[in-house]
Design a binder for these strands. Structure first.
Lengths: 144, 144
DNA sequence: TAGATATGTAACTATAATGGTTACAGAAGG
DNA sequence: CCTTCTGTAACCATTATAGTTACATATCTA
């Protein structure tokens, strides 16, 4: 199974688009770039808004804008906003508590899972939206 | 979303049990420790067998045994055997190729995802089954 | 050789997450 | 007022997961 749903990649896409265009964009416009339904975009924008990463404006000529500069937004924040719960987890299994292995395996695994999660968050935390946009711009000029 | 299905944690549980008991165990016995159905255990044992981590024996007095010493089995191998596909991925989204952002976002994200995956695999690769068993034994004596 | 005990594996089911879709209420601007 | 947005509910199809029953087949032992 893959780590993430499509929400995280789509959220990065949305924010990169907002950073590149530097203006208010409607969910319909963004959906055109992502190639999905506007409601899917609005749902993600809502969670990004709650996380303080974008501000949205109701009404005619409304839409979404970045709430902060791209340099001040890390992929870790975006990931935390869009992917709920623990990344690595034990789900609902309840091993036999009368077995020497079953009664101790879960805390031991949790420790390993935390180390894995820390490693992942390290990488995401040191990558900013500005770097993503820069990479996109570099590819644009390279391809041309 | 969580990173793994329950297959990976259950596989580690199975292998730790085999390492601790140092004898052939039946799927029914293992299922008693994991607290699930024997067929679920057999399915996971099958993939572990294909990965060369256990050997299984048909017939009466059959069962599974470790194919290698616990020191020579890393959690990364177990994870690769039990969780198919990429850890971090882009699923099936196809952004608008006529958009400057949409046409470049995926390779840029892939690069980030690879860094994340490398970091995670680093942690899993340096953790052995022997260490997991040792942690379990330590907890056993501590609780007593 | 017969019976007991295993694995191997197909088939079915329930459950949950995901993402796409329609529909509509309400806000904001011209 | 009318148009253009967001916010949000409701519904559906798809997919992954894991639990379950059932049975063929292999192997050991008496």
């Amino acid at each position: 199974m893959m780590i993430t749903s499509s929400r995280f990649p789509v959220a990065v896409h949305i924010l990169a688009l907002l950073a590149m265009q530097q203006r208010s964009l409607s969910s319909t416009y963004i959906a055109g770039s992502v190639n999905t339904n506007p409601v899917v975009i609005r749902r993600i924008l809502h969670t990004l808004s709650q996380a303080g990463l974008v501000t949205t404006q109701l009404g005619s000529d409304g839409g979404a804008t970045l709430a902060r500069s791209p340099e001040a937004i890390t992929l870790l924040e975006i990931h935390r906003a869009t992917e709920a719960g623990e990344l690595f987890g034990l789900r609902n299994s309840q091993p036999n508590q009368y077995c020497p292995c079953g009664s101790n395996i879960q805390p031991v695994l949790s420790k390993v899972f935390h180390r894995v999660e820390d490693a992942m968050q390290g990488v995401l935390g040191e990558t900013t939206l500005a770097q993503v946009v820069e990479d996109i711009e570099t590819r644009r000029s390279a391809v041309k």
